[in-house]
């Protein structure tokens, strides 16, 4: 852990968003977003629905295009060049609210597809790595089933393992537990906590404040397309600066 803290302190930002703006037609979804994330930093983003949280993290791997400002990921600026975008996407894993597993492939095929076709990993090697990640998310016995045969919690763990198979430098989580039944949330959060403790750089959009307290290095609160507040969790939960943050926290913390 000491090594890790040193490494974190030593390295510069791995994600840099500077003056990022985005509109949907006339609607201003992202207003002048400035955010820096260091290597190994765990950022939790929260805020009311429609505040632009998902849009912001989807800009980081260019699932959404920003219209103004700069986004630099791992030294590569996100511009319209398809090659650069693919290069950035290879280094960023993303986990979605609705899992988005490929339903026509088995769990193992879901995991080996990208390593084999994007990284040109030989099948045997890709399968061994995939099995190792399935062990890590504690469902190796499901390897040969189809996603449709798994519970929501299991599917989300497969989705996390699928991203990890690409050995990403950064992981983005877009409300990973919002579509789950309550009794399955913990098994997914446990996997994410383990991942965070392993030193992964993470940006996580979630309303799971317990999880945020456990792992976050910094909390980001968004409202109306703006970053209202960014602070370490202790400060964020105890002494929120803005009224909007206070109101939001009072609504979700019972």
């Amino acid at each position: 852990m000491i090594n890790l803290a040193e490494r974190r302190a030593a390295s510069g930002p791995v994600i840099q968003m500077a003056g990022v703006n985005k509109w949907y037609g006339e609607f201003h979804v992202l207003k002048n977003i400035n955010l820096e994330v260091r290597s190994g930093e765990r950022v939790v983003v929260c805020g009311p629905s429609g505040s632009g949280k998902s849009t912001m993290i989807r800009c980081i791997n260019r699932l959404e295009e920003h219209q103004k400002g700069r986004i630099v990921v791992d030294g590569i600026e996100l511009i319209a060049d398809l090659k650069q975008i693919d290069a950035v996407r290879r280094e960023i894993g993303m986990v979605f609210q609705h899992f988005n597993l490929f339903p026509h492939m088995t769990v193992l095929e879901n995991l080996t597809l990208a390593p084999m076709w994007v990284r040109n990993t030989p099948r045997k090697e890709a399968e061994d790595a995939a099995m190792a990640y399935l062990e890590r998310v504690k469902i190796p016995e499901q390897a040969h089933k189809f996603p449709g045969q798994l519970s929501g919690g299991q599917q989300q763990r497969v989705a996390i393992a699928r991203s990890l198979c690409m050995k990403p430098k950064i992981m983005l989580f877009d409300e990973p537990t919002s579509a789950l039944d309550p009794e399955m949330i913990k098994e997914v959060l446990d996997v994410m906590i383990e991942l965070a403790q392993g030193g992964m750089t993470m940006i996580c959009v979630t309303h799971e404040m317990g999880f945020a307290r456990t792992v976050a290095d910094s909390m980001v609160f968004m409202d109306g397309g703006e970053i209202v507040e960014k602070a370490p969790p202790t400060e964020f939960f105890k002494n929120p600066k803005s009224e909007r943050t206070k109101l939001f926290l009072s609504q979700i913390l019972h």
Partner: peptide, 9 residues
């Protein structure tokens, strides 16, 4: 989206 985010073209 999930295919793209895995780096598939």
């Amino acid at each position: 989206e999930s295919a793209k985010s895995l780096g598939l073209n």
